[in-house]
Nucleic acid binder design. Structure first.
Length: 848
RNA sequence: GCCCCUGUGGCGGAAUGGUAGACGCGGCAGACUCAAAAUCUGUUGCCCUCACAGGCGUGCUGGUUCGAGUCCGGCCAGGGGCACCA
């Protein structure tokens, strides 16, 4: 019997699918649509296991939906702008464009080897002028619609990548790519007005019911809505200062007012107060890095001013400038209530300010309750608060708001953590921002007829700074309005802009405008989006915002780009380290008796935790080596087996071997079944073992279908193993036609997961058509549920036996049968049962 | 610090409040083989037992229930997100 030759078979079927254009998708079909999308890759040069896992899942779903009769859109493209190309340019002297397109060619070939059911006619890269010209047009349209603006702001400066970063791109005070501590700089930059949609982005999360709760929660926290009261204090110098508080109920516990060092009032006061100026300057020097913030002590400067308590004209509070008050949140000023806010407490202790509890826990006595090192932030009753005494926190908040509003001093407001999206990057390998700065006319968009603003062919990467800025001619242009000498914007778009609308472009990649309304109406939203959890905030939030922008501009009717989201886990692998502490690659390691050694030696290496595959830990397995050895179907099967798709999976050589053996096993079954009579051959009455095989087949169809619908690939795999075992065990007593039918069903069921093997098997079984053109098998409900079932019999909740009964058997009969069981009477020890609970077709529990 | 998630055999993991451990890996025993690989068959949570029969088991601890891996409370451990956001 010939072994299954995966390499040969896979090349063959990929060529066949290609020739017959099996996966080229029409925008015009009577079939229901299904848009399946995986997050498109950055063209680093080669695919990694994370890609394999991601694209396998999407491919299974795309093929499954296709077989179910959907018109499936499953495209692929390249997130092709970004820093690695610039780094390659700097290190190797290549052109970033050439480097990028060469990488795309290499990765496309690798993806094709995986046998993905992708419509390659829709492929594009974000660095294609034909893509970014539309992005430039969108930028201008967003600008005209008031969704883009330029402003001076404190920005996050990455000193290694020499660019500014969005808030979302600062992780623990460090740049998301470089890992360098981010510095604060005041610069004039371009922003997308994502805050125009804050409420919508927040509220719509509730309707994204096919998104993971975790991602929705992360976005919710990121947007960070808090309701509170904004009100003003009268100051001793005749001015007023606005503060924002979510806890106005604690107003009688106030012991100071604090301004941010960046507050306009603080800056004004500093002009006449050298010590204050020095204090403000020092606050500015403390970085935003995590350590800096954690270790930074609460520091304040007493301005000498006082603020009058809103409810007591005789009550004066000192006004400080304090380093822990952020200008960017709320009003940049607070009232400090040390008893009920940890930061205020630390500040008050340091500067000897009063700490008066005004909310007291139920268990405590208001007269003796004291605050120690921890502020009390719990619920219960107001105390020491005049007209608020005895109220609960919520009522007190309302009462304060009501009274201050009546005085015209306050307003109930909502504040958010979310800031506008800073999109300018001082990088040359990105989509040029299509704006021109004219001395006379100010900021002027590039004329539509002048789009695209193309990147120059050659860029000089010598020295620091943006090569677009230092290019001899590129930035010098005539003003589109006055025709005078003007300069181009040399900043480019954050690459997250590129990925914020690519899914809409896929709907019609030949559209004259950025997005074809007709195609978008047909395809959007994406039915199932699949990618890594690391994009839970950045990419997914930006894409949600951008889709709203597209809606406003009339390109689409939808607000939410991704109706279904699935976040897959990472691919991990064991790590190996020598005694000297150097990482060792898995290919250089072999295992013997539970220990690992360097190949060809007896030098033991330490086996470390399984971690995400990374170059630095040298625990990367290149997918192409696995595909070369076992074929794409094996690696695909591995990615689907055992581990639930949302969890991290451990790659293992043994596991890959197992998957390969399973492919061979299927092939053996096919070879053995070749000469069996076709499934339609009359077999007379089907009963006994033959009926059981038929039932097992239909149960498998039902189960696999249900599991694939819900992306439970690991369970679908288990169901397929079960059916395979049943088919293997079926002997010659079962009519050949029924055995053959079972096997053919198995071949169709593995179609989405191991598509090449399925085609080979289908062909070997005598079919002329392709599996990709076959319909998904349908389970017969009558065969899925059997007539007799095995139910459990418990005594006092303990299993004492099982019995096989007819489905739907009447309760009294079931009860009698259960009581007649020998283990039951033994457990009862002659006692009469107190009560018998019969759950039809499920269980009997006898209470003794 | 705040918020969230997860704890099940040697391992990956199954299990609408109803027979815990499906399926896979690994182990053990056997068949085939001169032998090995591959393949096939059986077996495999732990304890006691020759066996039958028992007992114990889903991080710990209470509770709800005829019945809890699943629901509720408290703890412990691991992971993730946010982090001077008033």
């Amino acid at each position: 019997m010939a072994r299954y030759n995966a390499t040969e078979s896979e090349q063959h079927w990929q060529a066949v699918w290609d020739e017959r254009q099996c996966f080229v998708t029409s925008n015009d079909s009577a079939r229901p649509k299904c848009y399946v999308l995986e997050m498109f890759p950055y063209p680093s040069g080669r695919i990694h296991m994370g890609h394999v896992r991601n694209y396998t899942m999407g491919d299974v779903l795309a093929r499954f939906r296709r077989a179910q009769g959907y018109n499936v859109l499953h495209p692929m493209g390249w997130d092709a702008f970004g820093l690695p190309a610039e780094n390659a340019a700097r290190e190797k002297g290549v052109n970033p464009r050439d480097w990028t397109y060469a990488n795309i060619d290499a990765m496309r070939a690798q993806l094709k080897q995986m046998g993905l059911a992708i419509d390659w006619t829709r492929e594009f890269a974000t660095c294609d002028p034909d893509y970014y010209k539309h992005q430039q047009r969108l930028f201008i349209e967003f600008y005209k619609a008031g969704l883009v603006y330029r402003a001076e702001a404190d920005v996050n400066w990455d000193p290694v990548d020499h660019t500014v970063l969005a808030n979302e791109q600062v992780i623990d005070g460090r740049g998301w790519r470089s890992g360098a501590p981010v510095e604060r700089r005041k610069l004039s930059q371009w922003f997308f007005k994502i805050t125009a949609y804050t409420d919508e982005l927040l509220n719509a999360l509730d309707r994204l019911d096919r998104w993971p709760d975790k991602v929705r929660l992360m976005q919710k926290n990121w947007i960070g809505r808090s309701e509170g009261l904004r009100f003003s204090f009268n100051l001793s110098n005749g001015e007023t200062v606005d503060v924002f508080s979510t806890r106005p109920d604690t107003l009688f516990g106030a012991s100071f007012v604090a301004l941010s060092p960046d507050h306009p009032l603080a800056e004004r006061l500093a002009k006449h107060d050298a010590k204050l100026a020095e204090f403000v300057a020092e606050c500015g020097r403390v970085g935003t890095a995590e350590e800096a913030i954690e270790t930074a002590e609460k520091m304040g400067y007493d301005t000498g001013l006082t603020a009058t308590h809103p409810f007591d004209a005789d009550w004066q509070l000192p006004v400080y400038v304090a380093n822990f008050v952020l200008m960017a949140y709320g009003t940049g000023a607070i009232f400090g209530c040390p008893a009920h806010d940890q930061r205020d407490l630390e500040f008050a202790r340091k500067y000897g300010l009063p700490v008066l509890p005004v909310v007291v826990p139920e268990s405590a006595d208001p007269k003796t309750f004291e605050i120690g090192k921890e502020a009390y932030v719990g619920p219960r009753r107001l105390a020491n608060s005049r007209f608020l005494d005895g109220m609960d926190v919520e009522s007190a908040k309302n009462e304060v708001a009501k009274r201050l509003e009546a005085q015209g001093k306050a307003e109930r407001t909502v504040h958010y953590r979310l800031r506008d999206w800073l999109v300018s990057r001082q990088r040359p390998w990105g989509c040029p921002i299509p704006m021109i700065r004219c001395g006379k006319c100010g900021l002027v968009p590039v004329k539509e007829s002048d789009l695209p603003v193309l990147l120059p062919d050659e860029l000089q990467f010598k020295g620091a700074g943006n090569p677009l800025d230092s290019h001899p001619t590129w930035k010098h242009v005539a003003c589109p309005q006055c025709d005078g000498a003007a300069e181009r914007e040399t900043d480019t778009c954050d690459t997250f802009v590129d990925s914020s609308w690519y899914f809409a472009r896929f709907c019609d990649t030949r559209a004259d405008g950025p997005v074809s309304r007709k195609a978008a109406d047909y395809w959007l939203p994406v039915d199932q989006y699949i990618g890594g959890i690391e994009h839970a905030i950045l990419h997914l939030l930006y894409a949600r915002f951008f889709t709203r922008g597209l809606h406003r501009l009339g390109y689409t009717d939808v607000d939410e780009p991704f109706a279904g989201l699935f976040t897959q886990g990472m691919v991990c692998h064991e790590t190996y380290k020598t005694a000297a502490g150097e990482w060792v690659e898995p290919v250089d390691v072999h295992k013997r008796g539970g220990h690992a050694f360097l190949n060809g030696t007896d030098t033991e290496v330490a086996v470390g935790h399984s971690e995400k595959m990374s170059k630095s830990k040298k625990n990367v397995i290149a997918p192409e080596t696995i595909i070369d050895q076992y074929g794409a179907d094996t690696i695909r099967w591995f990615m689907l087996s055992d581990t639930p798709p949302e969890r991290d999976v451990d790659w293992s050589a043994e596991g890959a071997e197992t998957c390969w053996k399973f492919a061979q096993r299927i092939w053996r079954l096919v070879e053995e079944a070749k000469d069996l009579p076709p499934p339609r051959t009359p077999v007379g009455n089907v009963e006994g073992a033959a009926l059981e095989l038929r039932r097992a087949t239909h149960r498998a169809i039902a189960a696999v279908t249900d599991d694939l619908e819900n992306l439970r690939f690991n369970r679908a795999v288990a169901q397929i193993y079960t059916l395979t075992n049943t088919i293997s065990a079926a002997d010659a007593s079962i009519p050949g036609a029924i055995r053959r039918k079972a096997l053919e069903t198995l071949v169709l069921l593995i179609g989405p997961m191991m598509p090449h093997l399925a085609e080979s098997g289908w062909q070997a079984l005598g079919h002329d058509a392709l599996v990709v053109d076959e319909s998904w098998p349908k389970a017969d409900p009558d065969l899925v549920r059997s007539d007799s079932i095995t139910i459990a019999v418990q005594v006092n909740g303990k299993l004492r036996g099982t019995m096989e009964i007819a489905r739907g058997m009447e309760k009294p009969l079931v009860e009698a049968a259960a009581l007649a069981l020998e283990p039951v009477s033994r457990a009862l020890e002659g006692k009469a049962p107190k009560r018998v609970i019969v759950v039809p077709d499920r269980i009997v529990n006898i209470v003794a």
